[in-house]
């Protein structure tokens, strides 16, 4: 209530225009509107002008689209969501949030909205996006995201690829990452989200995040990842908190959630420094990872080397150097062809 009063006293005229129709408008709020209207000629002009426009707009009450919303707003919202899902090619999604925030799904602004900024990176590129509140988003290779940001809203749509989020705390302005039809909301935390063909992976580096259905509200503490959550959990997804040091994955097609605790979180954000660390991964997985950053496809054309174990840090900004490093550490040869880079076993092995 005090917040409403403060907004009327200090804010733009919109606050008064909304509060004056509210069923719980207090006498103090009404008096505050009165005082501003009386004492500030510009405010008075704006207030009266807007009330006149609202009166004139009564003529739009019988507009077909408005009648449809009044008759069946739930269906209108639902159909809009389905359209968005189809447009994004996403069958299901993931919602995750940090802190006891109330989450609600809100569709995106139209493409003509100037506040919606889109970013993308080509193969091998990275981009750092700094928001006005100090939050930083790092977008990894071949990624695409849109940022919807204003004084009341912080929302990101991750459409493709991987991004690392360092979120500045702002309890009244949720920071939401939307991955199709569901979202991630965070306050004062750091996490990495990667979109795979079949699942989303969220690695929580600092703070905590929570998965839940988009219509659920978060209720503080009770949800948590326990040791039992190492196993896959079938949907429907219940509220589930994931703390720093944990990685959560949500399988889109099967609706399965799982969380695990890796030995190190370092690798989940290390791509931002241009280096990838590998701790005992087989070569084929390392190559799969390097291919994300390489304009020229790298392929292993010798089954005998696919399972070689890799312990090293590789540059993802200079793929040639990374492959040279691998060739020094492992019994492999790297041959560059016109259309691809081929890895084979060293002659004589």
């Amino acid at each position: 209530m005090l917040k409403n009063l403060q907004e009327i006293m200090d804010g733009d005229v919109e606050h008064a225009l909304v509060r004056i129709w509210s069923e719980d408008l207090s006498e103090a709020e009404a008096a505050a509107i009165h005082r501003r209207v009386q004492s500030d000629p510009k405010y008075r002009e704006e207030f009266h002008g807007s009330m006149e426009v609202l009166a004139a707009m009564e003529a739009l009450a019988n507009d077909g689209e408005h009648l449809e919303i009044v008759r069946d707003c739930r269906r209108v919202v639902h159909e809009h969501k389905l359209t968005r899902m189809a447009a994004l090619g996403v069958a299901a999604g993931l919602l995750l949030a940090v802190g006891a925030l109330v989450i609600s799904f809100s569709p995106w602004r139209g493409s003509n909205d100037s506040q919606l900024q889109e970013y993308f990176t080509r193969i091998g590129e990275q981009q750092v996006i700094e928001l006005g509140d100090g939050s930083v988003i790092s977008l990894n290779t071949a990624g695409r995201l849109a940022v919807d940001y204003d004084e009341e809203l912080r929302r990101v749509l991750l459409e493709r690829g991987e991004a690392y989020f360092e979120v500045s705390e702002d309890p009244v302005r949720p920071f939401t990452v939307d991955m199709g039809v569901r979202s991630v909301t965070a306050v004062g935390t750091a996490f990495n989200i990667r979109k795979y063909p079949e699942h989303y992976q969220v690695a929580v580096v600092e703070g905590a995040v929570a998965f839940h259905e988009p219509t659920d509200e978060l209720h503080g503490a009770p949800w948590g990842v326990s040791d039992a959550d190492h196993a896959a959990i079938s949907s429907p997804l219940t509220q589930r908190r994931v703390d720093a040091g944990w990685v959560a994955e949500f399988d889109v097609s099967r609706g399965v959630f799982r969380a695990f605790q890796p030995e190190s979180m370092e690798r989940f954000g290390s791509w931002r420094s241009g280096m990838l660390s590998f701790y005992g991964e087989p070569l084929y997985l390392v190559v799969q990872e390097l291919n994300r950053y390489s304009a020229k496809k790298i392929s292993i054309e010798d089954d005998s080397v696919k399972g070689l174990v890799v312990y090293t840090a590789l540059s993802i900004r200079e793929i040639d150097h990374a492959l040279d490093g691998l060739a020094r550490a492992l019994p492999i040869e790297v041959t560059e062809q016109y259309d691809r880079i081929v890895l084979t076993a060293t002659a004589g092995n």
């Binding site: 129709w21 426009v53 609202l54 004139a56 707009m57 009564e58 003529a59 739009l60 009450a61 507009d63 689209e65 408005h66 009648l67 919303i69 009044v70 707003c73 209108v76 919202v77 809009h80 809100s106 569709p107 995106w108 602004r109 139209g110 003509n112 909205d113």
Partner: peptide, 26 residues
Amino acid sequence: ELEAMRSVIKNMRLNWRVAFVLQRFG
């Protein structure tokens, strides 16, 4: 002006539009 306002409502984000229409016209 009324026509312009119709267009403004139509191009709002859906949640804003739904809330506004329900309040003003519903």
